[in-house]
Design a protein around this nucleic acid. Structure first.
Length: 888
RNA sequence: GGGCGGUUAGCUCAGUGGUUAGAGCGCUCGCCUCACACGCGAGAGGUCCGAGGUUCAAAUCCUCGACUGCCCACCA
């Protein structure tokens, strides 16, 4: 048999690999990703969280894009000018490390190259590899406006960074100060508080004796970091601690260095910890630095920026900090100053980037004053101008914002936005300016030198929603697309990014940066563990795209999940999404082949329907569209998706399509326009979730439809709106009854192990729906393999004594099975069913006898319960009647 | 030390006060039925973690507890 032409067009199984690239090209060629600014319409704007320019696509990106793109596609189809703006982040440390590693292969360090040449090398790297992530984003089908693509180091965003810095400096919100900072000796830079990750771990608590200088006794302190004693400048006790009150004001001799240091009293000391005496090391401990602000004590830094001990460390100069610890402990032990070592479980700060133990060190850094910036950003969420989805994260946001601390924004790196501050060699003044100055703004000296540091990467990220749209210039984009509509990202960067965008957006642009914050959870491995390189459980989404298709991956990522919740991603889940895509493909193949065969050219509009099956499926479609709309509006994408999934598979394919075959086989072509119409609307409903395959099918379908499509592509076609007048309760009830009957007979056939090819006889008695059943006679006969089907069993043709009786809501069906029927078993089965119904009946009538229920429950609930009672009663009566007949 | 989640079928999860709680995967039985074996039909499988409470009505709201995960915090 030769294959008809259409089957060559649509292969038996959907092949994403052969489709996706071509479809994406067609979208690009159509220019559908670039919105038209239309002042009469409100835009829908999503600014993509910029992946690192060094980045490889991971599941976090995939989930982000799946969610953002489905929102964008949905709104675009609803006719809103939709901007999905893509971009990348220069990712200071991350990128610098990548390039440093690269040049290290030639035995070079960045210092060998020098600043200028090193930055040029990074740029060459970015020019060569920085576009990879974009290609990967495209493979997912993201409908981004590539004409507005942005990079944090582009001219526009850089200007925004510089303008912000200057403005905040002039307002006194950015300042330079010498304080203790979190220092990563390996990255050789300061870190913000957020970039330090604390982890519990086992350590030792060393008890060390400090003799008093007057020989009157000794104090024993407890520390986890003996090497820092080289920087001790005091010993502190709690002022209320009577054990030590006599020591306060005396002096102690620092072990090893024999420096004489004062004994002071400070509230910060916890008498219950260790011995209640604390070594004070302002140069190497945040608390101790604070203590120093309240006392007249020295500050000694005993360590270099690379983590080795410096000249203040005496004999330990040059040793690594951990090596120094070991050696100092040995010396203390030798000298009898080490009283004991206790095991201690405590939390230790490590560099978020490289995991090196962070060293608190005193240095001069730039800071941003956060409290004044936080205030309006808190209010915007409190008063509902910005909505957080899911809501619980608003509490997390408030908690952080109310306790916000100043942000250390300078980094000792080369790759990034260089701080626009110049220091005068003659007068000590600082010049901060938009344009590079030639001379000191205070004394006019030309002996000025620019601050070598760059800004924290998150500084530019914080400006992203407005810097990408042109700020500080008053561009048309900024005017139209700002504030953006939804900021969708992972809840893990709520503080790093979202909160800072809130603050900077309000400060710079004078308005909230987005109306809704949607936070998704983590994509984890099948065991629920966070994917990480060190665990070796990272999988490449591109492999999954190759195997199952981008649609399948996207669909799997948004299946059965709720905002903010984590999701374990398994191959099985992606495979079942792939299967769903294939199901859709084959339903379409069926419809297209019938269009091709019949020559019927359906209208784009809802067809007039008379047949109950047609009325039913059209009614159901419209109900589904209404529910989808409701879920989408509430960000319940998983539920929306499930709704269409179940409709397509469980109703359209399982029932409508099968029923339509029966009519078409009998020469009736009237289902074809309905098949096409419903399919076409389902394609629209599913497009945000399965963009590639729906577009491909739509392209196949269009040529068979009557008249113009009204849009050049599905992605810019209208999203289905509910047509209330399509609701048809009667048709729904009738088809439900048919389905119930078919299922009951199939069940019986399976139970009695009747060969699939062997028809059974069935007699319907006492049906309230005989008219509807008559119209569906052929369907019932075919779908349940019944022949003959006697619909007027009341007047004869059925004998209970050799039949199984199926008591249904639409009537009683007798299926004569002769010798196969065991009358005793039949009676038992019916009795059990009766018991079940009676139980239900009792529950319902109890409820309806309850005055409190009747008076307090809403009328529609009471009414529904009454209907249920009536149905149950009918059913009970019919079971009793059947039992009576069986008994003789 | 604070805060926030989760606990529903064998597994992974939906279910945002109203039928006798659902899906996918897995499992059992039967099918290569002319769209699809990435499939079709039938089925088994649940004290919705526990205890109180609110309500006409609770998996859903409140309180307490158990287990579990995460976030924040300068516990030397």
């Amino acid at each position: 048999m030769t294959q008809p032409a259409h089957n060559r067009e649509m292969p038996k199984a959907y092949d994403p690999g052969a489709t996706e690239g071509r479809i994406y090209e067609s979208w690009m060629a159509g220019g559908y990703f670039t919105p038209e600014i239309d002042r009469s319409k409100a835009p829908f704007t999503v600014i993509m969280p910029p992946p690192n320019v060094t980045g490889e696509l991971h599941y976090g990106h995939a989930l982000t894009i799946a969610l953002e793109d489905l929102m964008c596609r949905w709104h675009r189809m609803k006719g809103e000018p939709t901007l999905y703006l893509p971009g990348t982040d220069h990712a200071g440390i991350a990128t610098q490390v990548v390039v440093e590693r690269m040049i290290a292969k030639d035995g070079l360090s960045r210092h060998d190259l020098g600043r200028k040449e090193f930055i040029a090398t990074v740029w060459r790297w970015v020019d060569q590899y920085g576009g990879r992530i974009y290609e990967q984003v495209k493979r997912l089908g993201a409908s981004c406006d590539w004409s507005r693509q942005a990079f944090t180091l582009d001219e526009g965003p850089s200007k925004a960074v510089r303008t912000t810095f200057v403005n905040l400096y002039e307002k006194g919100l950015v300042y330079r100060g010498e304080r203790i900072v979190n220092w990563c000796p390996r990255c050789a830079t300061a870190l913000s508080d957020l970039e330090v990750k604390h982890a519990e771990q086992d350590a030792s608590l060393y008890y060390i004796r400090y003799d008093l200088s007057d020989g009157s006794g000794a104090l024993t302190i407890a520390t986890t970091r003996p090497e820092t004693l080289l920087g001790d400048t005091a010993v502190a006790v709690n002022p209320d601690d009577e054990r030590y009150s006599e020591y306060v004001g005396k002096s102690a001799v620092l072990p090893v260095l024999k420096r004489v240091i004062p004994v002071i009293a400070d509230e910060a000391v916890d008498p219950a910890f260790g011995t209640g005496a604390l070594k004070v090391t302002p140069g190497h401990d945040h608390n101790d630095f604070d203590i120093r602000s309240r006392h007249d004590i020295d500050l000694v830094t005993a360590m270099n920026l690379d983590g080795t001990m410096n000249e203040n460390a005496g004999p330990y100069e040059g040793f690594d900090r951990f090596e120094a610890r070991t050696r100092i402990v040995a010396e203390l032990e030798r000298d009898g100053l080490l009283e004991k070592i206790e095991p201690l479980h405590h939390s230790l700060g490590r560099c978020d980037r490289c995991n090196e133990v962070v060293e608190p060190l005193v240095s001069k850094q730039w800071y941003m004053r956060m409290e004044p910036l936080a205030k309006p950003a808190i209010e915007a969420v409190e008063d509902g101008r910005v909505r957080v989805v899911p809501e619980r994260f608003a509490k997390v946001y408030f908690n952080w914002m109310y306790n916000i601390r100043d942000w250390c924004i300078s980094r000792q790196l080369w790759w990034g936005h260089r701080i626009p501050a110049w220091y005068c060699g003659d007068c000590d003044a600082t010049t901060v300016a938009l344009e590079d100055p030639d001379a000191c703004s205070a004394c006019g000296s030309t002996a000025i030198e620019r601050d070598p540091d760059v800004l924290d990467t998150w500084f530019s990220s914080a400006l992203w929603p407005h810097s990408t749209l042109g700020w500080p210039d008053r561009t048309e984009d900024l005017d139209y697309f700002y504030p953006s509509t939804v900021m969708e990202t992972g809840h893990d960067i709520l503080f790093f990014w979202v909160a800072r965008m809130m603050m900077m957006g309000m400060e710079n642009a004078g308005d909230i940066p987005f109306h809704t914050i949607y936070l998704h959870g983590l994509v984890t491995d099948p065991e629920g563990a966070k994917m990480s390189k060190s665990k070796g459980n990272v999988r490449d989404p591109l492999d999954q795209i190759d195997t199952y298709g981008a649609d399948a991956l996207r669909f799997a990522l948004t299946t059965g999940t709720s905002p903010g919740n984590h999701m374990r991603l398994t191959d099985a889940k992606i495979a079942s999404s792939r299967n769903f895509a294939n199901k859709l493909w084959n339903a379409a193949r069926f419809v297209v082949s019938n269009l091709d065969r019949s020559g019927v050219r359906p209208s784009w509009e809802r067809p007039d329907t008379t047949h109950v099956e047609d009325r039913w499926i059209v009614s159901r479609l419209n109900r589904v569209a209404a529910r989808v709309d409701g879920y989408m509006n509430e960000f319940q994408f998983g539920e929306a998706q499930r709704e269409v999934h179940d409709f397509l598979w469980g109703e359209y394919c399982d029932w409508y399509l099968e029923m339509s075959k029966i009519r078409m086989r009998a020469g009736d072509e009237s289902p074809i326009p309905v098949l096409a119409y419903v399919l076409e609307r389902v394609l629209r409903l599913l497009h945000p979730f399965l963009p590639f395959i729906t577009e491909e099918i739509w392209g196949n379908l269009v040529q068979y439809m009557d008249g113009e499509a009204g849009s050049p592509a599905l992605m810019v076609a209208g999203y289905p709106e509910t047509e209330d007048d399509a609701y048809d309760d009667e048709a729904e009830a009738e088809i439900e009854a048919v389905v119930e009957m078919v299922r009951a007979i199939r069940n019986l056939r399976a139970e009695f192990k009747i060969q699939p090819s062997q028809p059974v006889r069935a007699v319907v008695r006492g049906s309230a729906m005989s008219g509807a059943l008559e119209a569906e006679e052929a369907a019932i006969k075919t779908l349940a393999q019944v022949d003959p089907l006697v619909l007027d069993g009341a007047t004869g043709g059925g004998d209970s004594n050799d039949s199984v009786s199926l008591v249904l809501s639409s009537g009683t069906v007798l299926v004569p099975l002769g010798g196969l029927v065991d009358l005793d078993r039949e009676r038992e089965r019916l009795a059990a069913e009766l018991k079940d119904v009676a139980k239900n009946l009792a529950r319902l009538s109890n409820r309806l006898d309850d005055d409190r229920f009747l008076s307090r429950a809403p009328e529609e609930v009471v009414e529904r319960e009454r209907e249920r009672l009536a149905t149950a009663q009918q059913r009970r009566d019919r079971i009793e009647e059947t039992l009576a007949r069986l008994s003789g």
